[in-house]
């Protein structure tokens, strides 16, 4: 009986020590994950800056005109229309608005 009690006490002590060691180990693991999170957040922010820089209207306009040889649409080349469906149920539908870009420029087939 005494042996059993001794063993139980020792087992409890070992359990306590194991728990403390595990807490410290988990602490190190959490710290590693935190550092990783910081690095990933930093990378995310850098990528957001990059996306924002690359999508700047000024840059896109420059790339379109200088690299791709595009020009802004000339007068009459963009036609805005309000589309009215011809079906009898048309009055029940929302009034859709579409934009059509159409070339009427010289030398181009309309």
């Amino acid at each position: 009986m005494r042996t059993l009690a001794t063993l139980a006490v020792m087992a409890l002590l070992l359990l306590y020590v194991w728990e403390r060691v595990d807490i410290v180990r988990a602490g190190y693991h959490i710290e590693r994950l935190k550092s990783k999170k910081v690095l990933l957040q930093r990378e995310r922010d850098e990528l957001r800056v990059k996306v924002s820089t690359l999508t700047a209207p000024e840059r896109i306009a420059r790339a379109a005109t200088e690299k791709l040889g595009m020009i802004p649409p000339q007068q009459g080349q963009v036609i805005l229309v309000k589309v009215e469906p011809e079906t009898p149920d048309s009055d029940r539908l929302a009034d859709p608005e579409v934009r059509l870009a159409k070339s009427h420029g010289p030398g181009r087939t309309p």
Binding site: I79, K82, E84, T87
Partner: peptide, 14 residues
């Protein structure tokens, strides 16, 4: 997306 005051009206199919 502002339409001109004299829009060109087109009929569209389904």
């Amino acid at each position: 997306g502002v339409s001109p005051h004299q829009p060109i009206k087109l009929a569209m199919n389904a």
